[in-house]
Protein backbone atom coordinates (compact mmCIF):
# COMPACT_ATOMS: atom_id res chain seq x y z
CA UNK A 1 0.00 0.00 0.00
CA UNK A 2 1.42 3.40 -0.91
CA UNK A 3 1.77 5.87 1.96
CA UNK A 4 -0.97 8.07 0.51
CA UNK A 5 -3.40 5.19 0.18
CA UNK A 6 -2.46 4.08 3.68
CA UNK A 7 -3.31 7.55 4.94
CA UNK A 8 -6.76 7.51 3.32
CA UNK A 9 -7.49 4.01 4.53
CA UNK A 10 -6.41 4.99 8.03
CA UNK A 11 -8.67 8.05 7.89
CA UNK A 12 -11.57 5.85 6.81
CA UNK A 13 -11.02 3.51 9.75
CA UNK A 14 -10.72 6.46 12.15
CA UNK A 15 -14.09 7.63 10.86
CA UNK A 16 -15.52 4.18 11.36
CA UNK A 17 -14.24 4.02 14.95
CA UNK A 18 -15.73 7.33 15.95
CA UNK A 19 -18.88 6.66 13.96
CA UNK A 20 -19.48 3.38 15.78
CA UNK A 21 -18.86 5.00 19.15
CA UNK A 22 -21.28 7.73 18.22
CA UNK A 23 -23.81 5.15 17.14
CA UNK A 24 -23.73 3.48 20.55
CA UNK A 25 -24.63 6.79 22.17
CA UNK A 26 -27.08 8.00 19.52
CA UNK A 27 -29.04 4.76 19.17
CA UNK A 28 -30.21 4.88 22.78
CA UNK A 29 -31.07 8.53 22.45
CA UNK A 30 -33.13 7.98 19.33
CA UNK A 31 -34.96 4.93 20.67
CA UNK A 32 -35.88 6.73 23.86
CA UNK A 33 -37.14 9.69 21.90
CA UNK A 34 -38.93 7.63 19.30
CA UNK A 35 -40.75 5.51 21.80
CA UNK A 36 -41.26 7.70 24.78
CA UNK A 37 -41.24 11.11 23.15
CA UNK A 38 -38.56 12.15 25.62
CA UNK A 39 -35.56 14.16 24.51
CA UNK A 40 -33.15 12.90 27.12
CA UNK A 41 -30.73 15.74 27.78
CA UNK A 42 -28.95 13.58 30.33
CA UNK A 43 -28.07 10.89 27.81
CA UNK A 44 -24.46 11.94 27.28
CA UNK A 45 -24.09 12.27 31.05
CA UNK A 46 -24.73 8.54 31.33
CA UNK A 47 -21.90 8.06 28.84
CA UNK A 48 -19.63 10.04 31.13
CA UNK A 49 -20.92 8.35 34.28
CA UNK A 50 -20.04 4.98 32.81
CA UNK A 51 -16.50 6.15 32.01
CA UNK A 52 -16.15 7.07 35.70
CA UNK A 53 -17.60 3.70 36.75
CA UNK A 54 -15.05 2.10 34.45
CA UNK A 55 -12.24 4.07 36.04
CA UNK A 56 -13.45 3.00 39.49
CA UNK A 57 -13.88 -0.67 38.66
CA UNK A 58 -10.43 -0.76 37.06
CA UNK A 59 -9.01 0.87 40.19
CA UNK A 60 -10.61 -1.84 42.34
CA UNK A 61 -10.16 -4.93 40.23
CA UNK A 62 -7.35 -3.93 37.90
CA UNK A 63 -9.34 -5.45 35.07
CA UNK A 64 -10.69 -3.57 32.09
CA UNK A 65 -12.78 -6.59 31.15
CA UNK A 66 -14.69 -6.62 34.40
CA UNK A 67 -15.22 -2.89 33.99
CA UNK A 68 -16.53 -3.44 30.47
CA UNK A 69 -19.27 -5.62 31.93
CA UNK A 70 -20.00 -3.93 35.25
CA UNK A 71 -19.83 -0.26 34.31
CA UNK A 72 -22.51 -0.31 31.58
CA UNK A 73 -24.76 -2.49 33.75
CA UNK A 74 -24.38 -0.05 36.63
CA UNK A 75 -25.15 2.81 34.28
CA UNK A 76 -28.20 1.00 32.92
CA UNK A 77 -29.44 0.45 36.48
CA UNK A 78 -29.09 4.14 37.22
CA UNK A 79 -31.07 4.75 34.03
CA UNK A 80 -33.81 2.40 35.15
CA UNK A 81 -34.03 4.06 38.53
CA UNK A 82 -34.24 7.47 36.88
CA UNK A 83 -37.04 6.29 34.58
CA UNK A 84 -39.00 4.46 37.22
CA UNK A 85 -38.83 6.95 40.06
CA UNK A 86 -38.35 10.33 38.42
CA UNK A 87 -39.31 10.44 34.78
CA UNK A 88 -42.51 8.50 35.22
CA UNK A 89 -43.61 10.72 38.09
CA UNK A 90 -42.85 13.89 36.15
CA UNK A 91 -44.73 12.61 33.11
CA UNK A 92 -47.77 12.08 35.29
CA UNK A 93 -47.79 15.78 36.13
CA UNK A 94 -48.74 16.41 32.51
CA UNK A 95 -46.26 19.18 31.87
CA UNK A 96 -45.53 17.79 28.42
CA UNK A 97 -42.07 18.16 26.92
CA UNK A 98 -41.12 20.97 29.28
CA UNK A 99 -41.32 18.60 32.25
CA UNK A 100 -39.12 15.99 30.57
CA UNK A 101 -36.59 18.55 29.41
CA UNK A 102 -36.30 20.17 32.81
CA UNK A 103 -36.01 16.86 34.57
CA UNK A 104 -33.39 15.40 32.25
CA UNK A 105 -31.44 18.66 32.29
CA UNK A 106 -31.55 18.50 36.07
CA UNK A 107 -30.32 14.90 36.02
CA UNK A 108 -27.44 15.93 33.74
CA UNK A 109 -26.45 18.59 36.26
CA UNK A 110 -26.76 16.21 39.19
CA UNK A 111 -24.59 13.60 37.46
CA UNK A 112 -21.99 16.23 36.59
CA UNK A 113 -21.86 17.52 40.18
CA UNK A 114 -21.88 14.00 41.58
CA UNK A 115 -18.86 12.86 39.59
CA UNK A 116 -16.99 15.99 40.71
CA UNK A 117 -17.85 15.33 44.32
CA UNK A 118 -16.97 11.66 44.20
CA UNK A 119 -14.00 11.61 41.83
CA UNK A 120 -12.80 15.20 41.95
CA UNK A 121 -12.29 17.52 39.04
CA UNK A 122 -8.94 16.25 37.84
CA UNK A 123 -8.52 13.99 34.85
CA UNK A 124 -8.41 10.26 35.45
CA UNK A 125 -6.71 7.75 33.25
CA UNK A 126 -7.81 4.32 32.15
CA UNK A 127 -5.25 2.16 30.44
CA UNK A 128 -5.81 -0.05 27.44
CA UNK A 129 -5.75 -3.69 28.63
CA UNK A 130 -2.44 -5.31 27.74
CA UNK A 131 -4.02 -7.77 25.30
CA UNK A 132 -5.37 -4.90 23.21
CA UNK A 133 -2.29 -2.70 23.24
CA UNK A 134 -0.14 -2.19 20.20
CA UNK A 135 -0.66 -2.24 16.49
CA UNK A 136 -1.56 -4.82 13.90
CA UNK A 137 -0.28 -4.71 10.36
CA UNK A 138 -2.79 -5.51 7.65
CA UNK A 139 -1.65 -5.18 4.04
CA UNK A 140 1.12 -2.83 5.05
CA UNK A 141 -1.14 -0.62 7.13
CA UNK A 142 -0.44 -0.36 10.83
CA UNK A 143 -3.51 0.14 12.95
CA UNK A 144 -4.05 0.11 16.72
CA UNK A 145 -5.72 -3.04 17.98
CA UNK A 146 -7.80 -1.14 20.48
CA UNK A 147 -9.56 0.92 17.84
CA UNK A 148 -10.34 -2.22 15.87
CA UNK A 149 -11.69 -3.69 19.08
CA UNK A 150 -14.04 -0.72 19.46
CA UNK A 151 -15.35 -1.31 15.95
CA UNK A 152 -15.82 -5.01 16.64
CA UNK A 153 -17.55 -4.43 19.96
CA UNK A 154 -19.92 -1.94 18.42
CA UNK A 155 -20.73 -4.30 15.58
CA UNK A 156 -21.63 -7.04 18.07
CA UNK A 157 -23.93 -4.66 19.91
CA UNK A 158 -25.43 -3.40 16.67
CA UNK A 159 -26.09 -6.99 15.69
CA UNK A 160 -27.69 -7.85 19.02
CA UNK A 161 -29.83 -4.74 18.86
CA UNK A 162 -30.95 -5.47 15.31
CA UNK A 163 -31.80 -9.02 16.32
CA UNK A 164 -33.90 -7.87 19.25
CA UNK A 165 -35.65 -5.16 17.28
CA UNK A 166 -36.44 -7.10 14.15
CA UNK A 167 -36.81 -10.66 15.32
CA UNK A 168 -38.14 -10.76 18.84
CA UNK A 169 -41.51 -9.95 20.26
CA UNK A 170 -40.03 -7.20 22.39
CA UNK A 171 -38.55 -5.65 19.27
CA UNK A 172 -41.94 -5.74 17.57
CA UNK A 173 -43.42 -3.94 20.53
CA UNK A 174 -40.68 -1.31 20.58
CA UNK A 175 -40.94 -0.66 16.87
CA UNK A 176 -44.72 -0.56 17.05
CA UNK A 177 -44.54 1.83 19.99
CA UNK A 178 -42.39 4.24 17.99
CA UNK A 179 -45.38 4.84 15.74
CA UNK A 180 -48.24 4.50 18.24
CA UNK A 181 -47.69 3.68 21.84
CA UNK A 182 -51.35 4.16 22.80
CA UNK A 183 -52.38 1.46 20.40
CA UNK A 184 -49.72 -0.84 21.80
CA UNK A 185 -51.11 -0.49 25.27
CA UNK A 186 -54.61 -0.97 23.83
CA UNK A 187 -53.32 -4.36 22.74
CA UNK A 188 -52.69 -5.26 26.34
CA UNK A 189 -49.01 -4.49 26.65
CA UNK A 190 -47.69 -2.90 29.80
CA UNK A 191 -46.04 0.09 28.20
CA UNK A 192 -44.54 1.60 31.37
CA UNK A 193 -42.52 -1.56 31.84
CA UNK A 194 -41.38 -1.51 28.22
CA UNK A 195 -40.40 2.14 28.64
CA UNK A 196 -38.33 1.29 31.67
CA UNK A 197 -36.61 -1.47 29.75
CA UNK A 198 -35.87 0.72 26.74
CA UNK A 199 -34.57 3.53 28.93
CA UNK A 200 -32.35 1.04 30.72
CA UNK A 201 -31.01 -0.46 27.48
CA UNK A 202 -30.47 2.99 25.98
CA UNK A 203 -28.40 4.15 28.93
CA UNK A 204 -26.60 0.81 29.00
CA UNK A 205 -25.46 1.31 25.41
CA UNK A 206 -24.30 4.83 26.18
CA UNK A 207 -22.46 3.14 29.05
CA UNK A 208 -20.70 0.68 26.74
CA UNK A 209 -19.57 3.63 24.64
CA UNK A 210 -18.34 5.39 27.77
CA UNK A 211 -16.18 2.42 28.73
CA UNK A 212 -14.89 1.98 25.20
CA UNK A 213 -13.94 5.66 24.98
CA UNK A 214 -12.29 5.85 28.40
CA UNK A 215 -8.84 4.52 27.39
CA UNK A 216 -8.75 6.74 24.31
CA UNK A 217 -9.66 9.89 26.19
CA UNK A 218 -9.23 11.06 29.74
CA UNK A 219 -12.05 10.66 32.20
CA UNK A 220 -12.93 14.18 33.29
CA UNK A 221 -16.11 16.13 33.99
CA UNK A 222 -16.34 17.66 30.50
CA UNK A 223 -16.13 14.28 28.77
CA UNK A 224 -19.78 14.21 27.68
CA UNK A 225 -19.94 17.57 25.98
CA UNK A 226 -18.81 16.91 22.48
CA UNK A 227 -20.10 13.44 21.91
CA UNK A 228 -23.43 14.55 23.38
CA UNK A 229 -23.73 17.31 20.83
CA UNK A 230 -22.78 14.99 17.99
CA UNK A 231 -25.30 12.41 19.17
CA UNK A 232 -28.07 15.00 19.05
CA UNK A 233 -27.08 15.87 15.50
CA UNK A 234 -27.25 12.18 14.61
CA UNK A 235 -30.73 11.84 16.06
CA UNK A 236 -32.03 14.98 14.36
CA UNK A 237 -30.48 14.22 10.99
CA UNK A 238 -31.20 10.50 11.09
CA UNK A 239 -34.80 11.09 12.08
CA UNK A 240 -36.15 10.90 15.60
CA UNK A 241 -36.73 7.30 16.55
CA UNK A 242 -35.03 5.76 13.55
CA UNK A 243 -32.39 3.19 14.37
CA UNK A 244 -31.41 2.85 10.74
CA UNK A 245 -31.00 6.62 10.61
CA UNK A 246 -28.79 6.49 13.68
CA UNK A 247 -26.49 3.87 12.13
CA UNK A 248 -26.20 5.58 8.77
CA UNK A 249 -25.75 9.12 10.06
CA UNK A 250 -23.32 8.12 12.84
CA UNK A 251 -21.04 6.42 10.36
CA UNK A 252 -21.42 9.29 7.93
CA UNK A 253 -20.51 11.84 10.59
CA UNK A 254 -17.49 9.77 11.57
CA UNK A 255 -16.24 9.81 7.98
CA UNK A 256 -17.19 13.45 7.53
CA UNK A 257 -15.05 14.23 10.56
CA UNK A 258 -12.04 12.24 9.33
CA UNK A 259 -12.04 13.40 5.74
CA UNK A 260 -13.15 16.90 6.66
CA UNK A 261 -9.99 17.21 8.74
CA UNK A 262 -8.00 15.65 5.92
CA UNK A 263 -9.19 17.96 3.16
CA UNK A 264 -10.79 21.08 4.59
CA UNK A 265 -9.47 21.35 8.16
CA UNK A 266 -10.55 24.97 8.61
CA UNK A 267 -14.16 23.98 8.06
CA UNK A 268 -14.05 20.61 9.83
CA UNK A 269 -15.49 21.78 13.17
CA UNK A 270 -18.59 23.26 11.53
CA UNK A 271 -19.09 20.63 8.82
CA UNK A 272 -21.37 18.63 11.08
CA UNK A 273 -23.67 21.58 11.55
CA UNK A 274 -23.58 22.60 7.91
CA UNK A 275 -24.56 19.05 7.08
CA UNK A 276 -27.40 19.16 9.59
CA UNK A 277 -28.69 22.47 8.26
CA UNK A 278 -28.54 21.16 4.71
CA UNK A 279 -30.42 17.96 5.50
CA UNK A 280 -33.06 19.67 7.57
CA UNK A 281 -33.81 22.23 4.91
CA UNK A 282 -34.68 19.44 2.50
CA UNK A 283 -35.94 16.80 4.89
CA UNK A 284 -37.22 18.47 8.06
CA UNK A 285 -38.00 15.07 9.60
CA UNK A 286 -34.46 13.84 9.01
CA UNK A 287 -33.42 11.11 6.61
CA UNK A 288 -35.40 8.30 8.11
CA UNK A 289 -37.93 10.23 10.16
CA UNK A 290 -40.92 8.11 11.00
CA UNK A 291 -42.73 10.07 13.62
CA UNK A 292 -45.34 12.32 12.15
CA UNK A 293 -46.39 14.30 15.18
Amino acid sequence: MSPVTAMYVAQAIHGLTYGMLLFLVASGLTLIFGMMGILNLAHASFFMLSAYFCYQVVAWTDSFWIALILAPIGTGLVGIIVERFLLRKVQKLGLGHIGDLLLTLGIALVISEAVKTIWGTESHQVLIPPSLQGLVTVAGLEYPIYRLFIIGLSLVILGALAFILFKTRLGMIIRAAVSDRDMVSALGINMPRVFMFVFGVGTLMAGVAGVAAAPMLTVFPGLADQIGLDAFVVVVVGGFGSLLGAVVVSLFLGELNSFGIQFIPRLAPVLVFLFMALVLSFKPMGFFGERDE
Binding site: R175, A176, S179, D180, M183
Partner: peptide, 11 residues
Protein backbone atom coordinates in the same frame (compact mmCIF):
# COMPACT_ATOMS: atom_id res chain seq x y z
CA UNK B 1 -59.21 1.90 18.02
CA UNK B 2 -58.30 5.56 17.97
CA UNK B 3 -59.68 8.55 16.17
CA UNK B 4 -56.33 9.20 14.57
CA UNK B 5 -55.43 6.25 12.43
CA UNK B 6 -53.78 4.06 14.95
CA UNK B 7 -51.90 1.39 13.13
CA UNK B 8 -48.15 0.99 13.44
CA UNK B 9 -47.42 2.73 10.22
CA UNK B 10 -43.74 1.85 10.07
CA UNK B 11 -44.52 -1.86 10.32
Amino acid sequence: SFQITSTFHNL
